Amino acid sequence: MQIVPVLDLMGGQVVRGIAGRRDEYKPNQSCLVEGSEPLATARAFRERFGLTRVYVADLDAIAEAQPDFETIGELVESGFQISVDCGSVSLQTAERLRQFAVEEIIVPLETLADWKALEQLLEVIPTTSLRFSLDLMNSDPMGVLGENNTTLEIVDRVSGFGLTKYIVLDLAAVGMNGGLQTLGVCQSILERNPQAKIWTGGGIRNWEEIEELQNACDIDGLLVASALHDGQISPAEVKRLSKT
């Protein structure tokens, strides 16, 4: 299991996620770095914790603005392996992200219009470069497709496209310091597809919880932001996890 730090971007700054209520997000305050500049924040993750893989959620792009290609380019040029969620991914946007050498393009359920859109993306982007984000709100799947499909129906459809990499995230838990709410879903995905590689997160509080999760389920990565910024997880603990 690896820790994957999260950069939620809005208006060119890192913001603090609060239960998916994006109108309440404010520039991040952290014990790791002064200010909320994205590259400085990413460098703090690397310098303090040795973390070079970062999950970037471009919240402006998710709200249908242009992706923050400038920040994405700076992160890649500075040696970070990044997975980018910029909402509904057009073929043009996907190709540009690949030109930036983005490691993974996230396909989020929240903004996926229909299965045809995913099928078209797969015609030009290899499955190894895509990660499907199973976006939940209080355990219910989000977006248009979430209205007419159960969580496991969505998982089965995604698996049918040959995708094996997932993010499982309940936005209601993000930034609330209430513990992970997605363990059961992750276990169900792995029962259906033992080869699945899953990142999950939302509400991770401390090292003790991470140890419990490591013993409970074969999760590949944990998305963490607040617990790192607030000093609830130490560099020594993160480095200990990387050796297991």
Rank of each mutant, 00 (worst) to 15 (best):
V102T: 04
I106K: 09
S78Y: 09
I82Y: 05
S83M: 13
E103A: 07
G73H: 04
V84W: 08
D114R: 12
V102C: 03
G87I: 11
I105E: 07
G79T: 03
F100M: 11
E70T: 07
C86M: 05
G79L: 05
S90L: 00
E95F: 00
D114S: 15
I105Y: 09
R98C: 13
A94T: 02
E70L: 08
A113I: 12
E70R: 09
R96S: 01
V84Y: 12
V84N: 10
D68V: 01
I106R: 10
A94W: 05
V76T: 02
F100G: 03
T93G: 01
G87Q: 05
V107L: 10
E70D: 07
I82S: 07
D85A: 01
R98I: 09
P67Y: 11
L91R: 02
P108K: 11
F69R: 08
A94S: 06
Q99A: 03
R96I: 01
L97Y: 11
Q99T: 03
G87M: 08
Q81V: 13
S78R: 11
P67Q: 11
T111W: 08
G79H: 06
E74T: 03
G79S: 07
F69D: 08
E103P: 12
D85L: 02
T111I: 11
A113V: 15
E74V: 02
E70M: 06
C86T: 00
I82F: 04
R98Q: 15
I105L: 10
V102G: 02
I105T: 13
T71D: 08
R96H: 06
F69Q: 04
L75V: 02
E104N: 10
S90I: 00
G87P: 08
F100C: 06
S90F: 00
C86I: 01
I72L: 10
A113S: 15
V76F: 03
T71C: 09
Q92H: 03
E95L: 00
L97E: 05
Q81H: 13
L75Q: 01
A113T: 15
D114N: 15
A113M: 15
A101P: 04
T93K: 13
V102H: 02
E104Q: 14
L91P: 05
F100L: 14
P108A: 14
F100K: 10
Q81P: 03
F80I: 02
L75R: 02
Q92V: 00
P108H: 06
S83P: 04
A94I: 02
L112Y: 13
D68C: 03
L109C: 10
E104I: 04
S90N: 03
I105C: 09
E110G: 05
V102I: 01
A113L: 15
Q99C: 01
L91V: 06
L97N: 09
